[in-house]
Nucleic acid binder design. Structure first.
Lengths: 232, 232
DNA sequence: GCAAAAGTGTTCTCGGTACACCCATGC
DNA sequence: GCATGGGTGTACCGAGAACACTTTTGC
């Protein structure tokens, strides 16, 4: 006879890779582990899923406890469940990634973990605890693909941004196909008509100030409904 | 203090959507449930993941028990873990899909479940048990996307096939953008140089017999290594 | 000889890519 | 006035899309 308890011997968790863009670099938020296993190694932020909690909600909670942010872009990527991936027992983890705007927010987490968190540029995000290298790879690959067909880039930029910032963001994500032609990039992105020229300019820069734009989500959604496809 | 057992109260399963192509139609293998909940409703093939079993292995086992097949294309899609998706308790399920060649094989499963399995054309695969409609949707969407950038179609066809069969397969998957131009399709697929003309022809058809081709996987992999991108 | 599907080329359009110089500001 | 990044237009090429008739077989 089938007995539910016989199969309920596994734990499951979510890991949430939190991407941010700062100083022209793509970064993720890592946590320095304070206890075994993998003490003192960097790890992805994650947590167990509570018994009455949906998976997405758990990922949002991890993000919230760490940064104080909510309502950010969140996407499930893939589930990692190799038998021996966790030394303490059978632990299946569902991997997510989030996109947050670093600038203009003081990230403050509520959990003690947030003390041990640090933004690390993606080139340096190696040698992570558990199978987190693999998880990071999978999520970053997904982001690279997704960002070309969905207007996700704006989730990583401040509300007002310049076209050069936007281009640098794409270059940071799509590396090493790093070299995007400035004129072609602008022609393409402006031809989509999903950016609004704010008629404002950068201030305090030692060169010709750039114009500021914002992303017009309403317009984007209207175009999509009409069959438009974002594509970079 | 952290106690592993406190969190190990959930069960997890895999569901595996098995796609096949037959009579010009895309079909999936469904199981008629013989017990509650959802008695007599159609459901996706699935099973609990054994404590010492990797997720992929569990999905392969589900496939094997049902069809006797192994070494087929298998891809993880997404994990469904809503708190109340299963009436018996908290059950998280990892969704997979497989692509199998129906023709030329007598599918014979080892499990008693295989008696209750049936190939159902995807248009009729609705009103499934649990949240399986949703799971099917997600997997079918993934297949639609994937099939345009990876040579997966061949996994669903017999080893030798005609160009018309290949085109019909794409039309079945990519519906409702159903109308593909014959000349353009052939020009494109042949220009990739990944098909081998077998110098054989169909037999016993009441019209001009079509030439038979096979997919050259070696060549495809060589081209990919050189930077080639499959794209339909 | 008729029904049924196989096979085959050309033209047009549009989007992608390559490419170099002047402009506005801070110091 | 000089250093720094901002901003702009054109020409070429190749891929995708549209489109109709002849060929080969079974009956």
């Amino acid at each position: 006879m089938f007995n539910f308890e016989d199969y309920a011997k596994s734990a499951f968790t979510v890991d949430n890779i939190i991407f941010g863009f700062d100083q022209g670099e793509l970064k993720i938020l890592l946590i320095k582990r304070g206890e075994p296993p993998y003490t003192n190694q960097w790890a992805l932020p994650g947590n167990f899923v509570y018994p009455n909690e949906d998976l997405d909600a758990a990922a949002e909670r991890v993000l919230g406890e760490l940064t104080g942010l909510k309502d950010v872009y969140l996407e499930q990527v893939r589930t990692f469940g190799e038998v021996n991936r966790h030394p303490l027992g059978r632990v299946i983890t569902v991997a997510y990634y989030s996109l947050v705007k670093i600038k203009g927010y003081n990230l403050k987490g509520t959990s003690p973990l947030s003390q041990k968190a640090k933004w690390v540029s993606i080139e340096n995000a190696t040698n992570l605890a558990f199978d987190h290298d693999q998880i990071f790879e999978a999520c970053f690959r997904r982001l690279k693909r997704r960002v070309r067909t969905r207007p996700l880039g704006f989730e990583l930029l401040p509300r007002k941004f310049t076209l050069t910032e936007l281009q640098q963001l794409y270059e940071a994500i799509l590396q090493p196909e790093k070299k995007i032609d400035k004129r072609n990039f602008r022609k393409k992105i402006l031809s989509m008509k999903i950016l609004v020229d704010l008629n404002e300019a950068q201030e305090g820069v030692a060169h010709r100030p750039a114009k500021l734009y914002k992303f017009d989500k309403k317009k984007y959604e209207k175009f999509v409904a009409e069959g438009f496809n974002f594509e970079i």
